[in-house]
Design a protein around this nucleic acid. Sequence first.
RNA 1: CUGGCCGUAGCGCAGCGGUAGCGCACUUGGUUUGGGACCAAGAGGCCGCCGGUUCGAAUCCGGCCGGCCAGACCA
Length: 574
Amino acid sequence: MRWSNLFAPTLREAPADAAVISHQLLLRGGFIRQLHAGHYSLLPLGWRVHEKVADVVREEMDAIGGQEMLLPALHPAWVWERSGRWQAMGEEMFRLSDRRGTLHALGMTHEEVVALLAGEIRSYRDLPQIWYQIQTKFRDEPRPKSGLLRVREFAMKDSYTIDLTDVGLDRAFDLHHLAYTRIFQRLGLPAVAVEASSGAMGGSDSVEFMVPSPAGEDDIATCAKCRYAANVERAVSAVKQPQDDLSEPLRRFKTPGIRTIAALAEAFPDAPANRQIKTLLHFINEDLTLVLVRGDHELNLSKLLDDRGAGAVRPASAEECRDALGASPGSLGAVGVDDLPILADTALRGRRGLVTGANEDDWHLRGVDLERDIKVDYWGDFRQVRPGEPCARCDGALEVIRCIETGHIFKLGRRYAEAFGVTVMDESGVHVTPTMGSYGIGIGRAMAAVAETHHDERGLSWPVSVAPYEVAVVSLTAEDSVSATAEDLYGRLRRGRVDVLLDDRNLRAGVKFSDIELVGIPFRATIGPRSLASGMIEFTSRATGTTVSLPAEGSAESIAISIQDAHSRLTPSP
RNA sequence: CUGGCCGUAGCGCAGCGGUAGCGCACUUGGUUUGGGACCAAGAGGCCGCCGGUUCGAAUCCGGCCGGCCAGACCA
């Protein structure tokens, strides 16, 4: 490609509404333009990067036996009704009707469509299967943000596995785990595999691939010592308990105007937050439920959701609290409550001498003994971990790190196969329901994550694996010998199957260098009269900034070798 | 959805009652040419939209639309 023909509208200043660095640099480098919140055009450079990411994904999916296909993006409503997700997906699903009034959805994922196709499989001999596609997904996100990181329309690699047995599913899952590890390594992304919550997908195991970045939206808890890593949505930690006094009688005491844990702890030195019970009222699938956690702990809603297998959880309003317990939030307690379910976090188990609301404004109770005074229906882990807490598996301490979720793999189980009546005949001639897995990588998000982790004050600095071009050849003057050498090198590199961009624009050197650096092309071959006089050209690495002189003669070969080296440094051994 | 900020040239911004401006980018000519050149001449605007107030609205008021940020939410 010649830059003189390239549509790459670079900007010296980032548009004001780009807040995160990947968004700014992708705009400035002329990779993307916004059409609408959450909808981006990928310009030629952006599309090249996108497709290089997709190709890495394809190669690794093919390597584990994946078969690429393409499923429709527009689905009739009945497909989603059959799995029960027409309702469950709620407002996140784009819905529309055709001229006959038939309802449709724009696909946000393809378990249903895959399950329908899986109905074609008759025999265990045809299993396992690994199917994948790279296709546009539509999700009506409540808040698209951060450029390509959270959008409403995006290409996703989604794969689906179909296996006869749980062991088979485990193997398919492990294969994906391996493929994903290799993919992110090749993309130059320092992804961490973490235990995750399955959320609306259902199913048993789920692992997310997380790239540490301040632009992310998820927090993971990790232990540097034993390598434990989990999304905070399900991370666990050990908890230090204060020493409780011996059992004491339950007593009411007046707490005028006190409505928060902190205020109570302040007013009563014998009631520090870790000796209080926080009483929260939530509707879990429409059932009003008390949830108790230690006063200084935070309730983790996704743990609650997962643990109860609930479809929806919402906090009760202040009014609903008063209707149910007769007091406002801040004065609620579970003592004496027997008409509502009570869930309690395990960090409260066995505690006594605690303080909690008396279900009457301006009154609290002290001397509360969990065993004696509260009828707990269910104990579970509902507590959000905090940085610095002890690791549950070793004597290390947990760190909480902000991350971008670039991939997620799920064991789905038989839910979808059952919903669509999929059965195959096993070895003994019995019809059995196969089990499925579902695995996703957001291509554009991965691209943004690379941008987020590969840049400096001059702009982007792509790993060769995904760079829009591997090398830029710059001719510095219009002099015949200079441009002829540049043209010659350009031609040789192209014939050597190198992705080369010839910067043949009639601009000053500084402008060309700045653009090439902004756009993040990993290597630059500079041809100017100064070094060409002694038969040399210059070869510069974007990442390190180092420049070496190469004899113009044979430079195409040495450049190709350098590029090949850079590729192999990113490629994991098989 | 709640709260905050913001919509003026491709990008960044100023103007905040008297009819549109600056820097960069763009076009033409000239001088330059190894790190974002200089001079000169140009082109480019439903000042987000609708309504109101006013002799007069980019500017004031109301409504709407859109964008960004935080939260809620979220595979």
